[in-house]
Write a protein that binds this DNA or RNA. Structure first.
Lengths: 185, 185
DNA sequence: CCATAATTTCGATAATCATCTAATTAGATA
DNA sequence: TATCTAATTAGATGATTATCGAAATTATGG
């Protein structure tokens, strides 16, 4: 999502479009005239900005009036200013889990809100976390911590629980993911 | 400047790099391993991020440790959240001068407010204007006027002063930019 | 001063993307 | 319906850039 945002911003013409829309709404013709571009080109850029949710469209007759969506920009700005949210970028595109329980424990940017206090909810949440690890690969403790921290700051609790539920195994400081058949129910 | 920032952000690999650096410093090798990219590729991305001022480099032996420059991101975030700053994007890229004196003489859209009445301020302002010309290129008087008029309507005064300060030279109606070493102090 | 290790630079290739013209859609008007 | 206007879509072209392997660079340690 963030990637789509910044990609939409990452072109001179589109930045200038946003600049123009920041002061007032414009039609495609107007924008094309100011930027010395052809209408199809402007239309193309506006489509990208719209897909990213950065501008909105109001149609009147056959004139299309474009407006800046300042809220989207504010949301992006907050994401860029927060170290926590930045860390979530590391994981690449997020795999939204089907499980409702797990989804309720995830923030919009794919981080865990907390360690589940309800005992029943622990297994699905931990299972989801365990699946972030590759099967058949070995991890140092630092690597385990790094992967966990992508989802929650409390690496100690989650690492201990993953091992406790037999989702991760550990020997001589090396960790690996166990097959799902061995996980606690 | 903002364009350079967002361009640097606008790639999945680079966003993920920032995400990793948000939690702690990393070497090139480490980053390459996590992202499954070759070192030259990561090096390339880091160079872009560094030029934009988004990451910094600490060298120890022949290992390069990269760190996130959270301040740059905060600055960018503020720019995106403010309507006023957004409006300045409309004007296209203005080569924002570092010099405070010059900045005070520029409108938001990169034009000169006036010819400096204070004698001391003339040199930096004229130097900035002179740098709008390419070195080693020859200009007709019409071309000189056109370039100056982009920055101020009074082409006569500025053209005369540029020549007077030995920033531009003229012979047989042809102008060219002189090396900075020859400019009046 | 040679060997090694980590990184960067170089050069080539392939993919992505911005821009244009021409053709098409959709609304308004007569 | 015919026509005019504003915008979008399609298709083609050229420019930018991500990635990699190979070569060059830089620092360390015998």
């Amino acid at each position: 999502m963030v990637l789509e945002f910044v990609k939409a911003l990452a072109h001179e013409s589109r930045l200038r479009l946003l600049g123009l829309l920041a002061s007032r709404e414009h039609s495609v013709q107007q924008l094309a005239a100011v930027l010395s571009l052809k209408e199809p080109t402007v239309s193309h850029h506006l489509a990208l900005l719209r897909e990213a949710g950065l501008v909105s469209l109001r149609q009147d007759g056959n004139t299309h009036w474009y407006n800046l969506q300042i809220k989207s920009l504010s949301r992006l700005a907050r994401a860029l200013a927060s170290r926590e949210q930045l860390e979530t970028f590391a994981g690449g595109p997020i795999d939204a889990p089907e499980d409702r329980v797990v989804r309720n424990y995830l923030t919009r940017d794919g981080r865990l809100k907390s360690f589940p206090s309800t005992r029943k909810k622990r297994r699905p949440v931990l299972a989801w976390l365990a699946r972030q690890f590759d099967e058949g690969r070995r991890y140092t403790e630092a690597e385990v911590n790094e992967l966990i921290e992508r989802r929650h700051h409390d690496r100690e609790t989650f690492r201990r629980e993953l091992v406790g539920h037999h989702m991760l195994a550990r020997k001589d400081g090396v960790y690996w993911r166990l097959p799902e058949s061995e996980w606690d129910v």
